[in-house]
Write a protein that binds this DNA or RNA. Structure first.
Length: 370
DNA sequence: CATTCCCGCCATCTG
DNA sequence: CAGATGGCGGGAATG
């Protein structure tokens, strides 16, 4: 019981959110020369417990930004790997059955992400909401009793959640519905509750990367999330982006404090603050934007443009800036300056892949799938 | 009261 | 078997 909140620095939930942590994480590693990310390193530099790093890393891995390399170590692929990862997710979602071969470079680890979304030829686009994708709860195959751990992983959940947007008509889903869908059936309220908690976790990091944004379901009023990827507008009309928007115009001014460090909810105090100091003095400060919403701060001080960044008001929070389909600008605007030729090539490769995919998708008939 | 979701216990899975 | 992972859900913060 150390006092919960020093008057000046009250405990603020937002400062400890996964979303903010994700932003900081990206800010810390999304730069030239990063190849490996160590969990302990990340945890200490970000001033959080290891447990939290797992949360973030798991969802980032689902989106291709990272790959687990070994115990305590991840390989940094970078944001450039996102398009490809999404493409893959989409594909998987459509051939809504499981087992996809790993396309990663090199080794095909193990079962990697296998999800078994039930088989059953789904008409790609069915109704608006619940439907087509679900993973059978029970499960079959390989399982006996082992399986489940992975099936409940945050990583898988992230993927399925994203597929929900990529492979469905609707680009707005309430977590509640999402939970039910992803849960297969299991109308167990308790299970759903837990699922929703997890969805909040992934939603937070995804929204910090501007993949999604919080809104309310048109009719239902229920809180929900809207996909901000490129799918939405492509969806509404064939042809190239209709809403290529703005872009890196403003340099946001974020808060200047590293968050995620202090004040435990109200118990024990923390001695982690020192990490903060250390970080500040030795590295560019992460600028979390202390109170407002949190989203990936963007490049500025990190050297690279942030494809997923968005203009953000310094005191934002209420400020619902229309987050835009940044991914759309990815190809044209995201131009990291890699000093390393290999990385550069890799990046180019990703971009090409993405463009190919994008144009392909763009000319598809709207009713078709997307 | 409802929604959001942080925290950290502790089951599992490696190495 | 110790350390690494990461479900899971209580319950606090917020709306």
């Amino acid at each position: 019981m150390s006092l919960p909140m020093p008057s000046s620095t009250a405990y603020c939930r937002k400062q400890k959110s996964l979303g903010l942590l994700c932003s900081n994480f990206l800010g810390l590693y999304n730069r030239d020369g990063i190849d490996t990310v160590g969990l302990d390193d990340a945890a200490s530099r970000l001033g959080v417990e290891r447990r939290r790093i797992y949360d973030i890393v798991n969802v980032l891995e689902s989106v291709g930004v990272l790959v687990r390399k070994a115990k305590n170590t991840y390989h940094w692929n970078g944001l450039g790997a996102i398009p490809k990862a999404l493409e893959q997710l989409k594909e998987e979602g459509f051939n809504n059955n499981d087992e996809q071969i790993d396309v990663k470079s090199g080794k095909v680890s193990d079962d990697e992400e296998d999800e078994r979304v039930s088989n059953h030829s789904a008409s790609l686009q069915d109704k608006t909401d619940l439907d087509s994708m679900h993973k059978p709860p029970g499960l079959l195959k390989s399982g006996t009793l082992i399986d489940n751990r992975k099936e409940k992983s945050l990583g898988l959940l992230t993927k399925n959640f994203i597929k929900l947007f990529l492979c469905t008509n609707s680009d707005v889903h309430s977590l509640d519905d999402a939970a039910k869908i992803l849960l297969g059936d299991a109308h167990n309220p308790s299970l759903t509750r837990t699922k929703v908690r997890r969805l909040y976790d992934v939603a937070n990091v995804l929204s910090s990367m501007n993949f999604i944004e919080k809104t309310h379901h048109p009719e239902t009023r229920k809180p929900a999330f809207r996909w901000l990827g490129m799918t939405s507008q492509i969806n509404s009309q064939p042809g190239p982006a209709t809403t290529v928007v703005h872009q890196e115009s403003k340099k946001r001014a974020f808060g200047t404090e590293l968050t995620n460090i202090c004040f435990k909810r109200n118990k024990l105090d923390n001695q982690e603050v020192k990490l903060f100091g250390g970080l500040q003095s030795q590295r560019q400060p992460i600028k979390p934007n202390t109170n407002g919403s949190n989203s990936y701060p963007g490049p500025d001080q990190f050297g690279q443009p942030g494809p997923l960044s968005q203009p953000k008001s310094s005191n934002g929070e209420s400020n619902k800036i229309k987050k835009t389909r940044d991914l759309e600008n990815l190809a044209s605007n995201y131009r990291p300056q890699y000093r390393n030729q290999a990385l550069r090539d890799l990046f180019v490769h990703y971009m090409d892949a993405w463009k190919a995919w994008y144009s392909e998708v763009a000319e598809m008939d709207p009713i078709g799938v997307i």
